[in-house]
């Protein structure tokens, strides 16, 4: 099961059979189940799905940022980056990769910025660790980075504390920290979810510009399908710990093959006269609990196309060779003779 990047570019990150479990009071749960994908240089890969489907656990598994005591990354899992398997790498190896080769930004930047240190100090620490610049050079570079992420008055802001900055500015500082070492991959986990839409536009614009300038690959995790439509090249759709569909952003939005993807897209409120004030198509029910996952298709209980087979077994992820894959016995929009919805 290999999901190649849409471009022919060599992947810089290869994830295979990633399975992450947690020890909980109610027993072992599998939060990420047999997830495989590639990330190519310069692309923006979106990971979407409703809350709890395993997006953050996937990214934190790659960064090895999950609490050691309760986390088990299955030994079959491989996370290959420049010849190293991050799934089994030791903490020293991870430390040189984190923030240097692979950087991550989170939804709430305040939790990853240290409130008692000035903004400049935090960037300086990253530079100290990952570069050989001297103190004066680092100071100059810090201010340059703040300017690059469009923070006004960087000479003044560099000596301020995180709480003196707005949410949008803090996220920009996080991006500055993430990018000051020119990483190969930036993993952005809901980077704009807590921000107002005009600030979201600034941050997305900034990420786009930096990607173009540095050819950084971006893994953008979000539940906002509009953001995905505007900035991603390829998309992975997750459901209850599984990948249920992957494809180019156009395929996912215009020709979804998994009923969940289709239903998710339909449930977005629409602008415009035709849909105004109409009831929205919904997905009945809720996501199954990890403690109580069915052994058949995980979406079957909510699926409008459910057949007997769907509650007898779980479908495999089927690759169709064009960079697409789906996990469904009865996929939609199959080329060439696409079955109509009514006929199903």
């Amino acid at each position: 099961m290999i999901q190649r990047a849409a471009s022919n570019a060599e992947p810089i990150l290869t994830v295979r059979n990633l399975t992450t479990r947690f020890r909980t009071d109610l027993g072992l749960v599998t939060a990420v189940d047999d997830v495989s994908f590639d990330v190519a240089a310069g692309e923006t890969l979106g990971i979407v799905g409703e809350s709890g489907c395993g997006k953050t656990v996937t990214s934190k598994s790659i960064m090895r940022l999950l609490p050691e005591q309760v986390t088990r990354i299955d030994p079959k899992s491989r996370i290959l980056f420049k010849g190293v398997n991050l799934a089994t790498a030791d903490e020293a190896a991870m430390r040189s990769i984190r923030g240097d080769k692979i950087a991550m930004i989170f939804q709430e930047p305040m939790t990853s910025l240290n409130p008692v240190f000035r903004v400049g100090w935090q960037i300086d620490e990253a530079l100290k660790y990952h570069t050989t610049l001297n103190r004066a050079q680092r100071r100059a570079r810090t201010i340059e980075m703040l300017r690059l992420v469009e923070i006004p008055n960087p000479e003044r802001r560099v000596d301020e504390y995180p709480h003196q900055l707005s949410g949008g500015m803090r996220q920009r500082v996080m991006i500055a920290i993430a990018l000051c070492c020119e990483p190969d991959i930036l993993i952005a986990d809901e980077p704009t979810t807590a921000l107002d839409v005009t600030i979201q536009a600034q941050i997305l614009n900034l990420m786009e510009g930096l990607k173009r300038k540095l050819n950084t690959a971006i893994v953008l995790i979000t539940h906002n399908l509009g953001v995905v439509a505007q900035v991603c090249d390829r998309v992975i759709v997750m459901y209850a710990g599984r990948i249920i569909e992957t494809g180019s952003v156009h395929d996912i939005f215009h020709r979804p093959q998994h009923p969940y993807t289709q239903a998710l897209l339909e449930s977005i409120p629409k602008r415009g006269r035709r849909e105004h004030g109409k009831r929205l198509p919904t997905i009945p029910g809720i996501v199954p609990s990890l403690h109580d996952l069915p052994s058949h298709c995980r979406f079957a209980d909510r699926c409008r196309y459910k057949q007997d087979k769907c509650i007898a077994a779980e479908p495999d992820l089927i690759e169709t060779g064009d960079g697409r894959a789906y996990r469904c016995f009865y996929p939609l929009n199959q080329a060439p003779a696409a079955p109509t919805v009514g006929a199903r």
Partner: peptide, 25 residues
């Protein structure tokens, strides 16, 4: 107008530069 322009559209075939307002709320 800025709010409308900053809102991403749910259609990858309809990409356009998002309206960027300077400054913070």
């Amino acid at each position: 107008k800025a709010l409308l322009g900053a809102n991403p559209i749910d259609d990858p075939s309809d990409r356009r530069p998002l309206t960027i307002l300077q400054g913070d709320v």
